[in-house]
Design a protein around this nucleic acid. Structure first.
Lengths: 339, 339
DNA sequence: CTACGCTTTTGCAGCGCTGCAAAACAGCAT
DNA sequence: ATGCTGTTTTGCAGCGCTGCAAAAGCGTAG
């Protein structure tokens, strides 16, 4: 494998200094048209391509950001990832991704900036295993944007939707159908379950707004937000003396799992039990029945997160932390009687 | 933001040369226990972390591999991605991912080594827009492993399952149920549709093995392998005078889309129409009905691809190209009458 | 013809690390 | 002591680029 072409090689051929070639390659302003074309010709002739590593070292930045999520095969994250990559690429950044499996140790290693310096310039982080307190303990030199439901402590930015409001709307929709025995699947009443707790809060508030009371024994906790958990929780509910007539699921996967159980037991959705999910993943739109859901604006979440992170990276002194609320909307499909 | 700790700082504190610190940090052999502990103490005291960029530049490698796939929100790729990341990380490599949307130009840019040199040391590539000919035109200095159904021309490795055999088995399964009007959804009879064509070949072969003939008008082409395409193709089939009694879909997503249409029209799966898919994505296991499928060994595909790529990267002279056949198996679920 | 301000080009140092080969050291035999 | 071998440590150059500040060029004014 022959040696690669360097700036110096181009400089020699073009009869200018290597610094000038650098200027041309990077599109700096003050270069005469004459030199520019001469250099450009040499670049083309030799097939020069800049060495990113060297550039990064000289600049002291890596041009990469990390996206850290609990699970990549969860459609929600896969869809988000896509938007994040697009947004970052547009702004000249590459995306490194990592999956933590919700393992707190793994997550901590990341926000402590891992053992590798300069592998990435900043991090977009969707925590699962870490609670608010552990999160506060991150490396202050590492620009950080957090996704999901944790709120910022002033040292990082936070992007998410208004979970309480969204959950209230979803629940209100079920109540509006005339259902009165509402179940909720996905609560997580422990330290790291903030996301779930906010949804439960919205669930309760919607009841109260109508002068009703949420039935606490119909609020089911699950370890994760996947199909299996949804299927099992639904089975538990159906084995009760008085099963629910509607279910608010904290993710679309949970909803799909729940529907699987319902249909498997010969119940009709939505006639016997109405089901609504959360996340608006593509699967939900094509399942049988299709799944009503809370749809967060993922494109907006991704773009805001990337933009905010890059701003933080570029800023010499840490900018003030912000809370960004992305919009959401309710999408009514067959599982709650939609078209 | 204060200056970061460098090797030299540690060296000074420990009273050794910076080269020795480097030796300790990298776990080289010939270092006495005495110096090792002394250096280690200094490392800990100063909180030294190596600068990956500098190391990479000095070594002339980036420690990163790229995984390029058409779509990230396709469950199959999301699941694969997960395994690739795990396999690469275990071997000390990071994974950069990119999505091409099947755009031929975008794909070409990648295998031509893009405009960025040394951003990654090698590439695992799942082509969609590029045909065999265009693929041959890749940068020979860039270690390349191709996934899917293209076969190697001797300049790169290829990892995939035996598509013809797998498709034959799936079709044979449907024939074994006594069905005789078999449709196939997902053919792509143009240059870049090799994957699809192999599946169609298997579909035909299974018929021939029984002395039957595949009904050509029941072989439907689709632009992609997603739910929408499956749903539409199924609708087309049902509008025919004589609709099929079984369908072989070239992906699970297509199968899910097809089932969506079937159920929407009041037909029963598998009683009226049996459906089998391809890929074994998680969704298929929890849908209603659950979807029978061809299950490729994704873990094995990912591991083989990564291992082979790293071998190619490490090798001073290009190793001979290999074809790696990962195993697959037929999984029978409700959509073809399984439990 | 010189001075001055502006634009364009250059030279050099250095980002932080590792490859290489030489130097220092240690242990042992002569 | 001296030489020899093998181990441990060191020094230096350089990976390919950019930041910085100085140098050169250039047009206009004095």
């Amino acid at each position: 494998m022959r040696r690669e072409v360097t700036l110096r090689d181009v400089a020699e051929l073009a009869g200018v200094s290597s610094r000038t070639v650098s200027n041309v390659v990077n599109g700096y302003a003050n270069v005469t048209e004459r030199t520019r074309t001469r250099v450009q010709r040499a670049v083309d002739e030799l097939g020069y391509r800049p060495n990113v590593l060297a550039r990064n070292l000289a600049q002291g930045r890596s041009g990469q950001i990390a996206l850290v999520v609990p699970y990549l095969d969860t459609p929600y994250f896969a869809e988000l990832l896509q938007s994040v990559i697009r947004a970052a690429r547009q702004r000249g950044y590459n995306v490194l991704i990592d999956q933590t499996d919700g393992d707190a140790e793994h997550e901590r290693a990341f926000i402590a900036h891992g053992s590798q310096r300069l592998l990435f310039d900043g991090i977009i982080f969707s925590p699962l295993g870490l609670d608010q307190k552990a999160l506060a303990d991150h490396d202050r030199n590492l620009p950080l944007v957090v996704l999901g439901e944790r709120s910022s402590d002033g040292t990082f930015d936070h992007v998410g939707i208004d979970d309480v409001a969204a959950s209230r709307e979803a629940t209100e929709h079920l109540l509006g159908l005339g259902r009165r025995r509402l179940a909720a699947i996905g609560d997580q009443p422990y330290a790291t379950g903030e996301a779930a707790q906010l949804r439960t809060q919205g669930f309760r508030e919607a009841h109260e707004a109508r002068g009703l009371t949420a039935q606490e024994d119909l609020i089911i906790s699950t370890p994760r937000f996947n199909r299996r958990d949804g299927a099992q929780a639904m089975a538990t509910l159906l084995d009760r003396a008085e099963p629910p007539d509607a279910v608010f699921c904290y993710s679309d996967l949970v909803a799909l799992g729940a529907i699987h159980t319902l249909v498997g037991r010969g119940l009709r959705v939505p006639e016997d039990v109405a089901v609504i999910g959360y996340d608006d993943i593509e699967d939900g739109a094509y399942s049988n029945p299709s799944v009503s859901t809370v749809s967060p604006d993922k494109e907006m979440i991704a773009t805001s997160a990337v933009e905010r992170l890059l701003l933080r990276i570029a800023s010499p002194t840490p900018p003030p932390a912000v809370e960004i609320r992305a919009p959401h909307q309710l999408i009514i499909r067959q599982s709650t009687g939609g078209a």
